[in-house]
Amino acid sequence: MQLSREALLKAYRQMKTIRMFEERLHDEIALGEIAGFTHLYAGQEACAVGVCEHLGPRDYIISTHRGHGHCIAKGCDVIGMMKEIYGSLEGLCKGKSGSMHIADVDVGMLGANGIVGAGAPIAVGAGITAKSNGTVSICFSGDGACNQGTTFEAMNMAVVLKLPVIFVFENNHYSEHTGEAYAVGAESMTTRAAAFGMKAIKADGIDFFSVYDAMRELIDYCTAGNGPASIELDCERFYGHFEGDPQRYRGKGELDRIREERDAIRTFRKKVTDARLLEDTDLDRVDAEVTALIDEAVAASKAARRPTAADVTEDVYISY
């Protein structure tokens, strides 16, 4: 599919923002600046951006514990996200959520989620709303989450109700420390999804264009009233399951190899420069802007207002 220069630059900026956000977090966490569990999305940028570049604010996504990339791609405020991860009162969720539950319903981002498999049923509900709006509901999910009963129930219900829900399975080949080859009993997540009675395809999750083109087809299919669909994206996670994971389950040289051969950012740059759609200087300019944005986000987060004891019981209810 032919994308305009602006659209290409925007897609690149989104992917690069995710990458730099995560790389910077990796460093800040090592310094002990950030509390809690953090699961980094670096390596999977083309999945989030290839999906979300099709979406508007009335399309919905629901995410996972590895949610930063989905949030950025769907348009959550990057500085607000960083402040949240730092636990500031100025964070997107006022310091209540941290990395694992970042959400911004106003931009159609229904939350990262600490409970594996919890998103799929909620995506079905968002699909009911989406159906009446002529939009779509996207459920981001992993090769681990696909084995949860909630995912099965949601897939079946979406088929039964013919809802415009797209189950996006990001297959990074691991659920925590366990390989996909062990835990997914079906031949693939795609054959499994197809068995539920939905259109199910695969794409290359490190190639923005592969994801983007496949998603155009699925969104058109779903919004035409054909019911749900599924897409399995082959991708890699560049860091541990969570920050601090020694990754002993990886093969020898595996991390070097995937960083060398399966890098979404490098793949994108090569494709657009080889095809003379963008110049290296265009892309370098984006890199500089993103670097400045991430620096600003971290500086702002460190200076941001901290919550106090009185904030603990805020927002438990609307009224009580």
């Binding site: 925590e176 390989g179 062990y182 002993r248 990886r250």
Partner: peptide, 20 residues
């Protein structure tokens, strides 16, 4: 349990973790 062995189906092999 989940990951009580760890590394099953992964190149590192079973017992790569031994429970989180």
């Amino acid at each position: 349990g989940e990951d009580i062995v760890g590394g099953n189906g992964a190149a590192g092999g079973p017992e790569a973790i031994g429970g989180i």
